[in-house]
Design a protein around this nucleic acid. Structure first.
Length: 405
RNA sequence: GGCGAGGUACCCAAGCGGCCAAAGGGGUCUGACUGUAGAUCAGCUGGUGUAAUGCCUUCGGGGGUUCGAAUCCCUCCCUCGCCA
């Protein structure tokens, strides 16, 4: 595999990248690696407090996979030290510290998910507590002396919070230093992540230099918007598509992505080259292609990738059946009930509604249907009689088949 | 340490003794229209339900005043700013 020249590798690796600091450094490192036969070390910092990996992360992982396919090695740095301190990095909510056990469980989950995309043989997992824990205060202070407060405040997130009078804790500055020190401890060649991590990466670059190491190349990938098309994909915004989500979920979520950002899903996730996407886009623009069908293709591709081609095909058929032709899905779970049925309690216990009040609300708005007939509102909704095997539908997406005991 | 401004529901934010389960945005959810998208329009958005100006939980925590407190008082905790 590793027959490509440094220049050829560079061409592949620099594709789709958002920041590359600096291209020359990367090329030089690739050349050196080619000569010595020693693979480059690609660092990726993983946050063990959030073990759910979604398509936003996948953008980076796909790039890392390319590195691996060219013979290089990926190191996952599990930020267990950081997680056990509790890191508010960015988000307004200060995260609560995790126990050692929680970190371990999360790290394992993390690895399992990552293996869906990366080559497990070329993926190493390390824990940053291994080198951060033994640091003495003296050493920490010396790290701090490498940077000024003004430098730290350069970070966009800090700036915003400072201006918005939102607290910034002192240890958040240390957090950037710790991430940087990880690079020193590993003496890595490349650090990868989302664009929002660029600041931390650059700190790492500086710090490595002051430790007399060859500074790392900082490589960031564009940030994939969440399914709302507004802000970056993240669990906390609930706009994410998890790579271990069910095929049905993935398909539905992809379809809910606004057209405007669909191109990012195609290109960032390597499902189409920029040229290929431009063609699709052009087809949509002159109405030769329906945007819905392009999105259906996208959803099918993503499900096929994360699950299987059969699943992708099946999900597409199901989707068209349920939402285009308004039929019930073929695989609805079935409940056997006895009459008369107290609808409110039933829906709550089945998890189809949050509370009985919500059931009443839904009824008032004609949001609950039995065999596609909206059920009328009543204070105590009760089903006296219905067809055996009737389909109960709550809102758009929740279905349940009812059998009479 | 001193002075000042704040802490309200999922988020932002009004309220400053009863008409407050708490205005207004945003978001979620439902319906219409659609391409399960977006935009638009309409509605809903604490729980319970003997259906009601009911009961329970909710305006940072605790205590108090009052027939009655998100609103007044005391105390504690937290955040922001200025000065040191």
């Amino acid at each position: 595999m590793k027959t490509l020249s440094a220049r050829e590798q560079f061409e592949i690796l620099s594709q789709g990248v958002l920041d590359l600091v600096t291209p020359d450094d990367l090329l030089a490192k690739l050349e050196k690696s080619n000569q010595s036969g020693k693979p480059l070390l690609i660092k990726y910092g993983a946050d063990p407090s959030r073990p759910d990996i979604h398509l936003g992360h996948a953008v980076c992982f796909l790039k890392m996979r390319q590195f691996q396919d060219l013979g290089h090695e990926v190191v996952f740095v599990i930020g267990d030290f950081t997680a056990r301190i509790g890191d508010p990095s960015g988000r307004s909510a200060v995260r609560s510290p995790l126990t050692k056990e929680e970190v371990e469980v999360n790290a394992r989950t993390y690895k399992e998910q990552v293996d869906k995309i990366l080559n497990p043989d070329k993926t190493r997992v390390v824990y940053n507590a291994d080198w951060l824990e033994p640091l003495t205060l003296r050493e920490v202070v010396r790290l701090g002396a490498q940077f000024t407060v003004a430098q730290m405040l350069e970070r966009d997130d800090f700036q915003k919070r400072f201006a918005g009078q939102v607290p910034i804790y002192l240890h958040e500055f240390l957090y950037a230093l710790m991430v940087a020190y990880d690079s020193v401890a590993l003496n890595c060649d490349v650090e990868m992540g989302g664009h929002d991590q660029l600041f931390n990466f650059l700190v790492g670059r500086d710090l490595m230099r002051s430790f007399g190491q060859e500074p790392q190349v900082c490589l960031t990938m564009p940030i994939l918007e969440g399914t709302d098309g507004q802000v970056k994909m993240s669990k906390s915004m609930d706009n994410y598509i998890g790579i271990t989500d069910s095929p049905e979920q993935i398909f539905g979520r992809v379809m809910s992505v606004p057209d405007e950002v669909m191109g990012h899903y195609w290109t960032y996730l390597n499902l189409a080259t920029p040229d290929e996407w431009a063609q699709l886009k052009e087809g949509i623009d002159r109405q030769a292609l329906h945007p819905r069908s392009v999105k259906l293709d996208l959803a099918q591709r993503i499900v096929s990738w994360l699950h299987s081609a059969e699943e992708g095909k099946h999900r597409r058929e199901e989707f068209e059946k349920v939402f285009t032709r308004k039929e019930a899905p073929s695989d609805i779970s079935t409940r056997t009930v006895s009459l008369p049925l107290d609808l409110a309690s039933f829906l709550v216990s089945e998890g189809l509604a949050e509370s009985k009040s919500e059931v009443r609300r839904l009824l008032k708005q004609a949001g609950i249907r039995l065999d596609e007939q909206p059920l009328p509102y009543s204070e105590h909704p009760t089903l006296e009689q219905f067809r055996d095997g009737a389909v109960l539908r709550v809102g758009k997406k929740k279905f349940l088949r009812l059998r009479i005991a």
